[in-house]
Amino acid sequence: MPRILLAEDNRLNQLVAVGVLRNLACDVEIVDDGAKAVEACLRDQFDAVLMDIMMPVMDGYEATARIRAGQEAAGLARTPIIGLSARAMDGDREVALNAGLDDYLTKPLREEQLRAAFQTWIPTPAEDEVLGPQPAAGALDITVDLTGRGLG
């Protein structure tokens, strides 16, 4: 289950995003400003961050820059950060990517767009990591009870 940090100050947008994230079987932690997002990312490991661009205390661009600097200084892996904004003007996406965000989605958040972003940014475990080693093709996986006490 992917662990996602949602940095969003608007309560209605939080509710929409949490609904979408739960439909995608994600574990969600919510913070309501950029400074708290920085603290959370330097305290815990997340599979991705959904970062509102326009927030009080610290906007998404500054928060992203501080997260990147903190992770680099601590030798931590780079967490994918996906910007969220109600703005859909030409050039907004490029500004976000140039500011260090990995992706940029517009609000209202839609499940299909978030699913596509996650497929790009969140590595999925290989089948054998999820299911464990599988028998070779054509091999039989049989358990035999030789004790007479039953397998149950």
Rank of each mutant, 00 (worst) to 15 (best):
L5I: 07
L5D: 01
L6H: 11
A7S: 06
D9R: 07
D9N: 15
N10T: 15
N10K: 13
R11P: 15
L12P: 13
L12W: 15
Q14T: 13
L15F: 12
L15M: 14
V16M: 06
A17R: 09
V18F: 08
V20G: 04
V20A: 04
L21N: 06
R22I: 07
R22Y: 08
N23R: 11
L24K: 02
C26M: 00
D27R: 09
V28I: 06
E29W: 09
E29A: 12
I30C: 10
V31M: 02
V31T: 10
D33L: 00
D33Q: 07
G34M: 01
G34E: 04
K36W: 04
K36E: 14
A37P: 10
A37H: 03
A37W: 05
A37Y: 10
A37D: 05
A37Q: 07
A37F: 09
V38C: 00
V38S: 00
A40G: 02
A40C: 01
C41S: 06
L42M: 05
R43C: 12
D44M: 10
D44H: 14
F46Y: 14
F46H: 10
A48H: 08
A48W: 02
V49Y: 03
V49D: 05
V49E: 03
L50G: 01
M51V: 08
D52S: 08
I53H: 00
I53S: 04
M55G: 04
M55C: 02
M55F: 09
M55Y: 06
M55V: 01
V57H: 10
V57S: 03
M58L: 08
D59G: 03
D59P: 03
Y61V: 05
R66F: 09
I67N: 01
R68P: 00
A69D: 06
A69M: 07
A69C: 05
Q71H: 15
A73C: 05
A73T: 14
A74F: 07
A74V: 06
A74K: 15
G75P: 02
G75C: 05
L76W: 15
A77H: 03
A77N: 13
P80Y: 12
P80F: 12
I81V: 13
I81K: 08
I81L: 00
I82T: 02
S85D: 02
A86W: 06
A88W: 09
A88L: 10
G91H: 01
G91N: 07
E94H: 08
V95W: 11
A96R: 03
A96E: 01
L97Y: 01
L97I: 13
L97P: 07
N98T: 15
A99V: 02
A99I: 11
A99T: 00
